[in-house]
């Protein structure tokens, strides 16, 4: 039996639930053959800001057990260069394009989206959860009020599907998600990286200039899965699961916990073809279990919405 892999994120239909996570796949158009990008359910761009950003001074990376700390700092070419240099190549690949948007103020988020409205792309993912920038990023995503303000401003300038990428570095992730949905967000992506740090013992100082950095990779998978479960229990909206997903079993777990789609991030650094390979592996996984439609897996965990 062939499994129907198609799924819907609200009004956005996807051929399959697999996409890349922002920040680990460049702009999405870098290596179409190596990554077999055309088979993905959607492509998410690197986070775009109004002006080009140089990013943080090195060091920017530290490998950890089963994980990776990064402090890239939203290095990107800016929205103008993205539209001129990357979007047409992305467009030539089949999948819907989701632009990841960042900003140091609610106004910048809206201004970036306003610029992108002229481009042929399908949806936005608001990055209110980057831990590696001084302004915007995590400081927005930690506050329901600030998150609401960013979403409200963006909603004024677009009718396109709008996903808000949440930080797990909060006491109550559901409250932040609800604030985003109340202002018209279509759905939520969970999670961005967990704050962590490393100390350079030889030099007796933090490894990273900003001390804190974002932890990703298989090390955070159970933590991320729990956040998706928490969101799915309380909120009725499309969820995109992210955090340490490598294999079809990982993806299936996130879908059972309530995710409609999944993103592959850090695993792509090890194997750039991993997101594309996951599409095939997910089909094999579903077929082995006699699933006719992958969407039947979503939120299928028994007792998901029962009160504990």
């Amino acid at each position: 039996m062939t499994c129907d892999l198609s799924t819907d994120l609200g009004p956005l239909g996807l051929a399959n639930p697999v996409m890349n996570a922002s920040g680990t796949f460049g702009y999405g158009d870098e290596w179409p053959r190596l990554c077999n990008t055309a088979v993905l359910g959607a492509i998410v761009t690197k986070t775009l800001t109004l002006e080009p950003r140089a990013g943080n001074p090195p060091p920017r990376l530290q490998e950890t057990p089963s994980g990776l700390l990064n402090s890239i700092g939203l290095q990107n070419v800016g929205v103008t260069a993205f539209l001129a240099e990357h979007l047409s190549a992305l467009r030539a690949l089949r999948p819907p394009v989701i632009a990841s948007v960042g900003g140091a103020s609610a106004e910048e988020f809206a201004a970036v989206v306003e610029r992108l409205e002229a481009g042929a792309l399908e949806a936005y993912e608001l990055n209110v959860s980057c831990p590696n920038v001084a302004q915007g990023g995590l400081s927005f995503g930690r506050s329901p009020g600030e998150t609401a303000r960013v979403v409200r401003g963006v909603r004024r300038v677009t009718q396109r599907p709008l996903f808000v990428k949440l930080t797990p570095n909060v006491t109550d992730i559901v409250a932040i998600g609800r604030a985003a949905l109340d202002e018209g967000a279509t759905g939520l992506t969970a999670v961005n990286t967990f704050l962590g740090m490393e100390i350079d013992l030889e030099r007796s100082r933090p490894r990273f200039g900003r001390v804190g950095a974002g932890l990703s990779g298989p090390a955070i998978r159970p933590l991320a899965l729990y956040r998706i479960w928490e969101l799915a229990r309380s909120l009725d909206c499309p969820l995109i699961g992210a955090g340490g997903i490598v294999t079809a079993r990982d993806a299936a777990a996130f879908m059972m916990a309530g995710a409609t789609a999944v993103q592959v991030g850090t695993a792509t650094l090890r194997d750039p073809a991993r997101p594309a390979a996951l599409v095939t592996e997910l089909a094999t996984f579903a077929e082995a279990r006699g699933l006719a439609r992958i969407r039947d897996l979503v939120a299928s965990l028994e007792g998901l919405r029962d009160v504990p």
Partner: peptide, 25 residues
Amino acid sequence: EAVFGCGTGLCGGCAIPAAGKPPDF
């Protein structure tokens, strides 16, 4: 030589300072 994340230009982890106008990498 630098610490590489992906080796393919996808992650931006292996930044080294570029000459010209700082803070470019």
